[in-house]
Design a protein around this nucleic acid. Structure first.
Length: 555
RNA sequence: GUUCUAGUAGCUCAGUUGGAUAGAGUGUUGGCCUCCGAAGCCAAAGGUCAUGAGUUCGAAUCUCAUCUAGAACACCA
């Protein structure tokens, strides 16, 4: 509709297309679309009021979408002809398989890496922000017609893992569980702060891995794989899955790293300092580090993480150089700029970075050692208990399968409802509440709608009649879904989608209170309302699916 | 110290490329179940958009400065 208005305005006055901004007026009585004509001034047109009148008088609404076009000061307001617009929108939603998707991806492949948590850590709510945003993006791009491949990088070597291996050799494991491994890690890393010999031993283990000692390599792999299994179990509960796993160690005991170093050497950007460390000169890239370099190797010749990461990233770029995304915390922004610069030197285009801010716990930083951390499993448990209590209060029961869905809905909606760039101030009490702006409210509303749809039948061939301002408003919001999706592909901002979902749900709740459906005596009206209800459910279900939230039929 | 990000109602947050009277949720205070599921709906109160200047016909939005919080900046990953 906005394109239509734009096209017709351009036919009236001669101005650059990008100067025309179609807005949604703040009040319902101001129409459905508007143009602020002060923006259209140039050498030819001076007076906004005159411009508004000029367009109004010459606007050719060939398809008859508008019942009225009015000026209000410098504003030009367009009033939709709802009888036409409503039917058109409802029919489009009913006949489109995935309304909102315009197949923007044209079935092209898209690669995204997210989560990639260190094996020695259990996911907490801070880290899982990465997974939730990553999964949201994966779903969004899949919805819009991309063939999405989700990648997970397993950091199975490095000092921390070496320490873990040493710890298990020293203390053994009380059982095969993930938490048993984590216990050992906590113990050994504490010990390492006072015992310098442990660090030496760790480095010697790493050296053996890099020189290809198969026994040592296996030790590392075996332990980290167990860890990853533990992590994946947790993500499985969140309904988050991955397609491709890559071990960091792959890039260590073959010649891959040497090849990259040779290539870098040929560009003249690779240098070695007096301690024998190899580093890349990034002085041409304006990266805000004290020294404009990126160090790739230790003085003993073993690789540092950036070295392996570059190798891995090149592997990903070779798989997909066109649509390549990575989700990282804001603390990695400068690091990523360094990696991108090195890739640029080597002639590669770096993946597109999606970054997000920290999660603080009740205003303070989360710290594993201080115990001020909320593990995702504990968070899920807390939400589950709150839900159980609420069901009990209402003397109703809920099975575990439904609880799984509800818990996910609460967590995902809460976490994705804050803009990526904003720090989340996490408060368990707020996060587990589910009145108002919450996943529970959304799912509950859908259940109410579905219960009406279940108990009534409707006919898709009968004419559509709407005579209520609220219905007009809802249908306009449904049509807006396409634009929201388009905007998401640019902003990659999950909070925009949660706000849309909440807004539409709220409109539904008003509709539910104000307008009777089942008992409406006029069958045409009843049929039209049922079809509208069905469209609301369709759009909400699609939108929730992008957030990674499933819906339920009954509570 | 340098660079980046943020600061909007008691609390948690929206506010799209500058545009009409700054919006939600939550909490508070009232009201609404004989009626499609009250985990809901309606209403009221609640604001120096951190502060100060500037640009503009017009600023929560752009620029500069200051304050506050967070992050990054060479052998951690």
């Amino acid at each position: 509709m906005k394109d239509y208005i734009k096209e017709k305005v351009l036919a009236v006055i001669n101005i650059p297309e990008e100067k025309i901004k179609i807005e949604i007026p703040p009040e319902d009585n101001m129409g459905d679309f508007s143009i602020q004509c002060a923006n259209l001034r140039n050498e030819q047109y001076h007076n906004p009021l005159e411009i508004a009148n000029l367009i109004k008088d010459n606007f050719k609404d060939e398809l008859g979408y508008f019942q009225e076009i009015k000026t209000m000061g410098p504003y030009l307001n367009f009033y939709l002809d709802y009888t036409k617009f409503n039917s058109k929108t409802i029919l489009e939603i009913e006949s489109t398989k995935e309304y909102g998707s315009l197949n923007q991806g044209h079935n092209e492949a898209l690669l995204i890496e997210h989560t990639s948590i260190n094996p020695n850590a259990e996911p907490h709510i801070g880290r899982c922000r990465n997974s939730l945003i990553g999964d949201f993006l994966s779903n969004l791009y899949a919805f819009t017609g991309y063939q999405v491949e989700r990648h997970y990088f397993i950091n199975d070597i490095g000092k921390k893992i070496a320490l873990l291996v040493i710890g298990i050799e020293k203390y053994g494991l009380k059982d095969e569980s993930f938490s048993a491994i984590l216990d050992v890690y906590v113990k050994i890393s504490k010990e390492a702060t006072t015992n310098e010999k442990l660090e030496e031993q760790a480095f010697s283990y790493l050296k053996e891995v890099e020189s290809g000692n198969p026994e040592m390599i296996n030790k590392f792999k075996e332990i980290t794989d167990k860890c990853v299994q533990g992590q994946l179990k947790i993500f499985d509960k969140l309904d988050i899955h991955f397609d491709v796993f890559t071990h960091e160690s792959n890039y260590v005991y073959n010649n891959y790293l040497d090849e990259i170093l040779t290539k870098l050497e040929n560009t003249g950007k690779l240098h070695q300092d007096e301690l024998g460390r190899k580093y890349v000169d990034l002085s041409e890239y304006n990266i805000p580090t004290k020294e404009p370099v990126l160090v790739l190797t230790r003085s003993n010749g073993t690789s540092l993480y950036p070295m392996r990461d570059i190798a891995y990233t090149i592997y990903k770029i070779n798989l997909n150089s066109k649509h390549n995304y990575i989700v990282l915390g804001e603390d990695q922004e400068v690091y990523m700029a360094q990696i991108s610069a090195v890739l640029d030197i080597l002639g590669y285009k770096a993946p597109e970075l999606i970054s997000y801010s920290y999660v603080l716990l009740d205003g303070g930083k989360m710290s594993t050692s201080a115990g001020t951390v909320v593990l995702i499993t504990d968070f899920m448990q807390a939400v589950r208990e709150t839900l159980r209590k609420e069901f009990k209060k209402r003397n109703s029961e809920v099975d575990e399968e439904k609880l799984d869905i509800l818990v996910n809905a609460c967590i995902k909606f809460t976490m994705l409802n804050v803009s990526k760039k904003k720090i989340v101030n996490f408060n368990l009490e707020n996060a587990t509440s589910f009145t108002g702006e919450s996943g529970m409210y959304i799912l509950y509303s859908i259940v109410r709608a579905k219960s009406i749809l279940r108990n009534n039948t409707y006919d898709l061939t009968k004419p559509l009649v709407y005579q209520n301002a609220l219905e007009n408003k809802i249908i306009k919001e449904l049509a807006n879904f396409k634009e929201v999706i388009n905007e998401l592909l640019i902003s990659n901002e999950p909070a925009h989608l949660t706000k849309y979902i909440f807004n539409l749900t709220q409109l539904f709740s008003k509709f539910y209170e104000q307008i009777n459906i089942t008992n409406e005596p006029d069958l045409t009206l009843k049929n039209s309302r049922l079809r509208l209800l069905n469209c609301i459910v369709e759009v909400l279900t699609s939108a929730l699916k992008i957030l990674g939230i499933k819906t339920i039929e009954k509570l």
